[in-house]
Structures are given as structure tokens and as C-alpha cells.
Design a protein around this nucleic acid. Structure first.
Lengths: 206, 206
DNA sequence: CGGCCGCGTTAGCGCTGGCTAACAGCAGGC
DNA sequence: GCCTGCTGTTAGCCAGCGCTAACGCGGCCG
């Protein structure tokens, strides 16, 4: 509602991403939105509450977006749409992504429980989609692969060299490539060539 | 040399990884190695110095390892060996990887400069290897791809479900797949099929 | 044996930082 | 036209934390 809360959360996210939760003071957050110091307590009960609300709202957005992609696409398209969704989210909200990755450990215990539950459900959407595409994959592997792809996509804040769209297509491509490769796995790991390409990456066997 | 310093650094890395640099007190670090509180100042000049030494030593190890792989392998094998090296390092030193990812911003300015210089050189080794494999790739893209693969490989600490070796092979596979895909890029992004596989991930075009 | 030195202890200082208290301007509603 | 409530201010409390000081103890060397 009140634009003020969101404004504060956005500024706080930026700061938390750069300096870490404990590396940012109340006064700095206030200064970032033009008010100074304890004015923030008119909008949040505590600094912990800011982080809590920030992370739960991110997690809810991701889960909602994931479920929506799952429910409004043909099964064969879901994984691709999830990739696109996550890439767009990461590119458009680098600070939020960074905070979610780094500052889970700074949450209050009940908040952490809530956030982890939401994240788990989001991962489950991915796991379903992955196994829909590659039913041979066992669930733990699919889950680990999902986490790895998150790492890939969320690496965005650390490399801003390409333009937004160039970055987006590259990340989508890489995500697809990574998932394709792991989905094709299960064979004895031996000759891993890229087949039908004019180059190959050698030496990954054993 | 003195095993004590390394022991302290290891404990501190674990704690920094979990709670963030500012989220950990001197007393906790001391407690983690069995001494209490300011005894650490017999070994380090400050808490900042601990983080500084930790991160520079990680960066030096990575750079040295990367250079060694580059210099002792045929060009066609270098990229694969770099992947293997990074995967092994991440799996064997999850705390260090986490700290390096998250706590660069908490370094002293001179320390940060040193670390960033080392990291840049390490990335350059990767960029060279990538472009050796796929000369058509421009340098910024190769750099961004390298960062993305780091994100993928370093996601390790967030998913411990598979065993070490299973995780290692999966991460290598995914890294290869991601790089293969991006290296093959440059064509108009349109039909992205996985070709000659029995499945495909659809919907990533545009 | 005696003095030095590496490594540890506890007490305590100074500052920072989260949070509260007390007060103020400024809407809108009766 | 006052009262209420929302939003902001400044002053200040109190805990925690980085770091220093002062001291103790055991081992090595002459």
C-alpha cells in the first residue's frame, strides 16, 4: 500500500546486498530514503522485521510466479518458462536476489522457517518440471540441479558487462545447456563430447 | 606454518559463511577454536586482517591452481580441467567459497583491491580458455559466461543432498553443458533444441 | 637457575548501533 | 476550531563488540 514501506524496503535491500545485514545501520537506511534514523520505526517494528518482510515477499513472488508458469503452460513448456521467469526476476531485481542468497542466516527463527518453506515449495515446482522433461532423473539429482541452475542465473549481479537482454538470452541458453546435459546423464560418465558441434570441451570424464 | 593461524582461519571462515562477517564476534571465533576472546590478537592484528588474509589466500590458491592447469595441459583440455579444479575446490571448501562470494564488501579497501586483482586474473585464465575453445565468442560474453559458471559451481554449499562425487560429476556436466550452449551461440536465437537427444526444453526463444 | 618469549587469561574502555521517549507539524473529520 | 492520528524530529539509554592493558604461566637457552 503505502509507497513508503516499499521505498524503505527497496533502499534497505540495496544496502543489505552491498554491505550485509549487520553491516548496515538504521541511520543509513533512513538516509537512503531521505528521512533520518528512527523514523523507520513508524513503518517497521524492528530491523529484523524489515529483513523478514523483504525475504518473505521475495519468496512469495517467486513461488507465485513459478506456480503461475506451471499452471498456464503445457508440461513440455513449463521448464523453459521457469527459466525465463527466474532470469527476468534476477536481472530486474539484483539486490533482492543477492539479499535472499546471502542473508537467510540473519533472519529470526520463525521468519527463517517461513522463508525456507516458501523456497522449498518453489524448488519443488522446478523439480516437477525437470522430471517432467527428464523422467529418468531421480529426485535428489533434480533438486541439486535446480539449485545449481539458480546459482547460475543468480550470478547476474556479479557481472553487469552485457546489456540486459544479451545477458538474459545468454543466461537462458546456459541454463538450458546445463539442464540438458544433466538430464541426459545416467550413462556411465566417459566420453563427454558435445556431439555435432564444431568444438568440444574435453577432459571432464572420471 | 603455525597450525594455530590456519585453525583460526578455518573456524572463522565457517562462522563468517553462516552469519556474515559482522554477524560474528571475536569471542565466538575464539570459542570455536577453544580459546576465548582476545587471544586471537596474538595471531592477527585485527578482525579485518583475518578476513583479509582469508580472502587473499583463497584468491591466490584459485589463481595458482588455474594457472597450473593452463600451463600443464593441451589447450583443448584446459577448460575441462579448469572446471574440474573449480568443482573440486568448491566441494572441498564450501565455507571458503561462501565467504569469498558474500564478504568481499566487508574487506578493507586495500585488501579488497588486492583480492579483486587476483580474482580478475583468475577470471582471465577462464576467459582465455573459453575463447580457445570457442574463438567466435567475444570477450565480454566469455567473461559473463565464466561468472555464470562460477555461480553454478559455487552453488554447492546450498545443496548437499548428493554425495561428494555424485555432486562433482553433476556439476561438471552442467558446467560443460552451459558452456557448450553459450559457445555455440551467436546464431539468431530461435529454435533452441538439444538436437540428437530424446527430449528437449522448449520455450526459451525470444 | 634466571630471564625471555610465545601464548593464554580477565578486566575494562570507548564507540557504535538498535531502539525508546518525548515532542512537533500537519492532515482530515466532527 | 479543536482533536486525533500519522509521520517525522532529536536526545538519550543500554547492550554488544572490537580492541588494549596488565598480568600469568610454561618451555627453551645460556
Amino acid at each position: 500500500m503505502s509507497t513508503r514501506r516499499e521505498q524503505i524496503l527497496a533502499a534497505a535491500a540495496e544496502l543489505f546486498a552491498r554491505h550485509g545485514f549487520h553491516g548496515v545501520g538504521i541511520d543509513e537506511i533512513g538516509a537512503a530514503v531521505g528521512v533520518s534514523g528512527p523514523a523507520l520505526y513508524r513503518h517497521f517494528r524492528s530491523k529484523d522485521a524489515m529483513l523478514g518482510e523483504m525475504l518473505t515477499s521475495i519468496s512469495e513472488s517467486l513461488l507465485a510466479g513459478g506456480q503461475e508458469r506451471r499452471d498456464t503452460n503445457e508440461p513440455a513448456q513449463v521448464l523453459g518458462e521457469l527459466i525465463r521467469f527466474q532470469v527476468d526476476f534476477a536481472l530486474d531485481n539484483p539486490a533482492l536476489i543477492t539479499v535472499q542468497e546471502r542473508n537467510l542466516g540473519n533472519l529470526t527463527e520463525p521468519d527463517r522457517r517461513r522463508v525456507r518453506a516458501l523456497q522449498r515449495r518453489y524448488v519443488e515446482v522446478w523439480v516437477q518440471a525437470i522430471r517432467e522433461t527428464a523422467p529418468a532423473l531421480d529426485e535428489p539429482t533434480a533438486r541439486a540441479a535446480a539449485h545449481a541452475v539458480f546459482g547460475l542465473i543468480n550470478s547476474t549481479p556479479h557481472s553487469r558487462h552485457l546489456g540486459r537482454d544479451g545477458m538474459a538470452t545468454m543466461l537462458r541458453e546456459m541454463a538450458v545447456g546445463a539442464l540438458t546435459r544433466v538430464c541426459a546423464d545416467g550413462r556411465p560418465s566417459g566420453d563427454l563430447q558435445t556431439s555435432s558441434r564444431e568444438f568440444r570441451i574435453a577432459g571432464t570424464s572420471g
